[in-house]
């Protein structure tokens, strides 16, 4: 096992040499890129990466340019996880057979995918990878919508969000179903490490990534990716909106160890009302009409109830 990179504070972290490059085609203010940087910079080890079809993929490998300074592969929408699993299998084979070109180096295997490519179309592939126990990390860039294709709902889209295939209208408040609980599902695979992170809480996130890199086996990271385009807020507000998400507990940050033990990893000093978070984004604008206002109350109740559940699990050590 290679040494864990020392990152005491942000000054020390800022000495990292990025392995993800600019002049990619992601929107100005896109959180995907911030997440990728925090993952890649969390280690100095070699990396073998994949991306599922989606914003990150179509914006970072548009011929004749690549924005990746480590080996990277994209196959399709659903199979980014299995692409990296195949590469990991080849690494193991060549290691056994003594054919690695740099036998003293142990690369980390990471697949990036959006919520659509993870919660929906790629779900089976990820489940297969985790059941088989590949030594890899799957990072979800969770922007709660199919952003690359213009904002269609996914099973990560939260109730009341207006997406193009679940639009708010005269009689509809938008998305009707609540977000799928992927963390519980992935923890139920018995994965050694599962965590929900947010790039605005960089220290918390980098610690989770480093812990994920340190364990053997499949690691699932659900990273909140505030989407300026589809959540409808100004590009400069990405971090502000992310702070609202974590501080309202809409995106609670926690980890589940070995599928069994839940730890809350961030407790806001001042919890803000969910309403502030919703009000800051165009996708929830219609919830403030009289006919749909009851949903804001329901939102708050749901978030409170979930936080209560997480705390009870943590206390009970399960």
């Amino acid at each position: 096992m290679s040494e864990i990179k020392k990152i005491k504070n942000l000054k020390e972290f800022s000495t990292s040499a990025d392995r993800f490059e600019g002049a990619n085609l992601l929107c100005p203010g896109c959180a995907h890129s911030i997440i990728v940087r925090e993952v890649l910079n969390a280690t100095n080890d070699d990396l073998i990466l994949s991306a599922a079809t989606g914003c990150l993929e179509v914006c970072t490998a548009v011929y004749p340019y690549t924005s990746w300074d480590a080996s990277w592969i994209h196959i399709g929408f659903e199979n980014g996880s299995t692409a990296v699993a195949g590469a990991e299998a080849m690494y193991n084979a060549l290691k056994k057979k003594g054919r690695l070109k740099q036998p003293d180096r142990e690369p980390k295997f990471v697949s990036f995918a959006g919520d659509g490519a993870s919660y929906d179309i790629g779900f089976q592939w990820i489940s297969g990878c985790f059941e088989r126990g590949h030594n890899m990390m799957h990072v979800v860039l969770d922007n709660e919508v199919y952003a690359n294709t213009g904002g269609q709902r996914s099973s990560s889209t939260p109730i009341g969000s207006s997406a193009t295939t679940s639009p708010a209208g005269r009689v509809s408040y938008g998305e009707k179903k609540n977000k799928k609980d992927m963390l519980s599902i992935m923890a139920a695979h018995g994965a050694p490490y599962v965590a929900q992170v947010a790039p605005n809480k960089w220290k918390n996130m980098v610690k989770a990534i480093q812990q994920g890199f340190a364990v053997e086996g499949p690691v699932f990271i659900n990273a909140m990716s505030a989407c300026t385009t589809e959540w409808k807020f100004a590009p400069e507000d990405t971090i502000d909106i992310s702070d609202m998400a974590t501080d309202s507990l809409v995106f609670p940050l926690y980890e589940i160890i070995d599928g069994k033990k839940l730890n809350i990893t961030y407790r806001p000093k001042n919890v803000i009302p969910v309403e502030e978070y919703l009000a800051a984004q165009g996708r929830f604008k219609h919830l403030f009409k009289d006919q749909f206002k009851y949903l804001i109350k329901e939102w708050q109740e749901r978030i409170d109830s979930n936080w209560d559940y997480l705390q009870r699990r943590e206390e009970a050590g399960v």
Partner: peptide, 11 residues
């Protein structure tokens, strides 16, 4: 403080 460094999406 390096806040700008860590949160810059474009390196």
């Amino acid at each position: 403080c390096q806040f700008c460094w860590i949160y810059c999406p474009d390196m």
